[in-house]
Each structure stands twice: as C-alpha cells, then as structure tokens.
C-alpha cells in the first residue's frame, strides 16, 4: 500500500529536546508538507525518518505496517524510504551516471533499475544529456536534480525532501515543483520540508504545523492556507508574501 506512519517521535540533542511526540503519516500518491519556523525540528524529523538520527524510546516508525524503529539507515531505504537531505548528500566527485547507479544500489531497486532510470531521465532530461559529468561541476539546480533522481532510483514508496528549493532561482524552483507533482502522479508519497510555505501549500495535499518540536495543527492544505494563524506565521497576513516571522 505504501504508507509511512511515524508515531510519538521524540528526538533530543543532549539536553535539548528538538522534537516532542510528533505523529505524522504519509501515504502513496500524496504530498505532505511540514511547516514551521527555523529550528522547529523539521529537518530532525526527516533525518530520523531515514534512520540517520536516533529516536528516543517510545517513538515508532512503521512502513506498510512493518516496524522499522531503530533499524540502520540501509534498512529504512530497503523498506522504501528515500531521503534527500538539505545538503543534498550527493557523491560530488562521482559522475551523474555513477550517482544514479548508486541510487539503485538497494536490493529492492536492482531489478527495476532500467525502468527507474528511464523514469528519472524523463523527469530530468538534463541529466540524460551529461551522464559523464562530475556532479561537483554542475549548477545548484542540476545537483538538486541529481539528488532527487538518485533518491528515485532506489524505487522509494516515500520520498523525504528537505528544503529542495533552497538556493534555486525562481525559474528552477517552479520547474522543481512541477517535477514534484509528476513524481506524485507515479504513486510515490512525498514528505516535504519547505521554506517557501506558500508554494508548498499550493502543491501539497495535507500539511502539519510544527512549533518548538510539537505538531500543533494538521489538516488539508486548503484548510491550513485559510487558517488565520498559519497565514500570519508562514504566509504573511495578506497571503501575498513569504514571511518567516
């Protein structure tokens, strides 16, 4: 069915509690956005959901009903979760082709690699033009394509994206959001952390509002967009400009 269920997730860094009992759910074919100010714990949730950060006792991750709490990162990937972190985590010294090939390293992805590659190259034609280019010599937007493309090569059921539009020009940003809609149409679920709240809510199906590590609201994105508090905090009161309080 393709469903990630995060229950009562708590994360701390030493004494500092970054996330407090957050529960989130993403199903296949939907885009879910996490809204919140800087330092609210958005990135921590995504990193924990990829197995990169240890969760506190009591937290649980389920993928299609299977418990993967406390598994190493490679088992999160094998379960169908792929993360594109904020720093993109690409293999900068390797070529585009090698990055995509590594994306298909998980066992779940090996057989489907040719199909997935065709899908990724259809989504990002620019990657097809320069398979042998080293990724570190590419522009920020192209590197983001490599990062997302590599994540999609692992045949994920759920894609976790941390600030994918960061550092992109407005034009590339629009292109990125169109790509996300196309990825959703291939039955992949997307959990999105995005500074551009207005754009994110426009494309998302549902959203969560995170304040100081706690989920304080969760609803359909139309409802969140018209919510007075959300408008004030993340969309600017008149809804026309982006304002990070």
């Amino acid at each position: 069915m393709g469903m990630l269920e995060i229950r009562d997730l708590s994360i701390s860094y030493g004494q500092h509690r970054a996330v407090e009992k957050a529960s989130l759910r993403v199903a296949k074919g939907e885009i879910v956005v996490i809204l919140g100010a800087n330092g609210a714990g958005k990135s921590s949730i995504l990193r924990a959901a990829a197995g990169l950060l240890p969760a506190m006792p009591g937290s649980s991750f389920e993928m299609n009903g299977r418990d993967i709490t406390n598994c190493p990162p490679d088992e999160f990937v094998e379960a169908g979760i792929a993360l594109v972190p904020e720093d993109r985590a690409i293999f900068a010294e390797l070529t585009v082709q090698e990055n995509l090939k590594l994306g298909a390293y998980p066992k779940r992805a090996r057989k489907k690699a040719p199909d997935n590659l065709a899908r990724v190259l259809a989504l990002f034609p620019r990657l097809a033009e320069r398979p042998r280019q080293r990724v570190q010599t590419m522009s920020g937007g192209e590197q983001q394509m490599v990062a997302i493309g590599r994540a999609m090569m692992s045949a994920p059921a759920i894609l976790l994206l941390d600030e994918p539009s960061l550092g992109l020009s407005p034009l590339l940003c629009s292109e990125l959001f169109r790509s996300l809609a196309r990825i959703r149409s291939t039955e992949i679920g997307i959990l999105l952390v995005e500074q551009n709240a207005k754009r994110a809510l426009a494309i998302a199906d549902r959203g969560y509002v995170l304040e100081n590590g706690c989920v304080t609201a969760s609803d359909r994105s139309e409802v969140l967009s018209s919510d007075e508090r959300v408008r004030k905090a993340y969309l600017g009161s008149d809804g026309s400009s982006i304002n990070l309080r």
Partner: peptide, 14 residues
C-alpha cells in the same frame, strides 16, 4: 568509492 566520497550519502543508498 561511494563510501570514500561521502559515507552519509552511502548510507542513504543502503
């Protein structure tokens, strides 16, 4: 080579 270049990213591709 992937581990040599970026161990975190290597973990992310299982």
């Amino acid at each position: 080579r992937a581990v040599a270049v970026n161990p975190t990213a290597a973990g992310l591709v299982a």
